[in-house]
């Protein structure tokens, strides 16, 4: 097997991913998630986060969160300089625990939504959104 320069770069990049990025991303999100959950365990399922796979422009990215039986849903953009995006609290006259908005994403990244259910449990959903650059001007 030949070990080319390209392979070396790929391995290097992979190592950087394993070593650096997730830890930093976790640290970024964790702080806010903990403040929201009070350190409780966060499960999967029962919440959906709908977002485009590729955003045409990071300045205006439509998203939708939905979690039946939630009292609150917090949205974090883990790759933004400041991760919090919004927190939706649903009142007694909310017909569904569902909301849409438009958000800013600084770069390609994971967006996370965490629901606080009315039984006190927490559930999480995430979406990976690619933020593209323009044709000429950027």
């Amino acid at each position: 097997m030949q070990f080319t320069r390209r392979d070396a770069l790929a391995v290097g990049a992979g190592a950087a991913l394993v070593a650096g990025l997730p830890i930093r991303a976790m640290a970024m999100g964790d702080e806010y998630i903990e403040a929201f959950t009070g350190g409780a365990e966060v499960g999967e399922g029962g919440i959906t986060l709908t977002a485009p796979e590729i955003a045409e422009n990071g300045n205006t990215v439509p998203i939708e969160v939905s979690a039946e039986g939630a009292t609150e849903i917090m949205v974090l953009a883990l790759g933004n300089p400041v991760p919090p995006v919004a927190t939706f609290k649903f009142g007694p006259l909310a017909a569904s625990q569902d909301a849409k908005t438009r958000i800013r994403l600084a770069k390609t990244q994971d967006v996370v939504a965490i629901a606080k259910m009315d039984d006190g449990t927490f559930a999480k959903a995430s979406a990976s959104i690619k933020v593209t650059i323009g044709g000429c001007g950027g």
């Binding site: 205006t60 919004a86 927190t87 569904s96 908005t101 800013r104």
Partner: peptide, 27 residues
Amino acid sequence: DFNGQNVIDVTLEPAISTNPFIEFEAT
């Protein structure tokens, strides 16, 4: 709010786009 009862209460951060848009359902 509707007739004094809450429907939704949203905390917005700087990551919300220019001209904030929010859509939701009410009873």
